[in-house]
């Protein structure tokens, strides 16, 4: 019964972050892009938890709480923006919003 090696946890966080990054690049649906950002934030929080578990300190978990707070605020504002874009443009394609100026 040994603890999980730190490299494995960080590798998992890296894989999840890369999946989110790939998705945010290949998807054009703006809700999918928001979901991908959530995946990336979650992966970053996982890296903090892994580090905090490695040194047995509560600081990593506190950083995760802050990331959680930030994700909640970000998703509420992001969804409000998505609603506005959908009402203005009648589409969820993020390329349709390329004419915004100033």
């Amino acid at each position: 019964m040994t603890a999980i090696p730190m490299e494995t946890g960080l590798l998992l966080a890296g894989i999840l972050f890369m999946l989110g990054l790939i998705s945010v690049m290949i998807r054009r649906n703006i809700i999918f892009m928001l979901i991908s950002v959530e995946i990336m934030l979650n992966a970053a929080g996982l890296a903090f938890i892994v580090a905090g578990s490695h040194w047995a300190q509560p600081d990593g978990q506190i950083m995760f709480i802050f990331i959680l707070t930030m994700a909640a605020a970000e998703v509420s504002v992001g969804l409000a923006l998505i609603l506005q874009i959908y009402h203005q443009l009648k589409t969820l394609n993020s390329d349709a919003a390329n004419f915004m100026k100033g």
């Binding site: 999980i4 809700i31 979650n42 996982l46 709480i65 959680l68 909640a72 969804l79």
Partner: peptide
Amino acid sequence: VVFLTMGAPFMAALEVIVYAGAIVVLI
């Protein structure tokens, strides 16, 4: 579950409540 195995049970509960609960329901 990964958090639970890492020895962070409180964060596991928060992950389920906030991410899987609140954020997904909002979307």
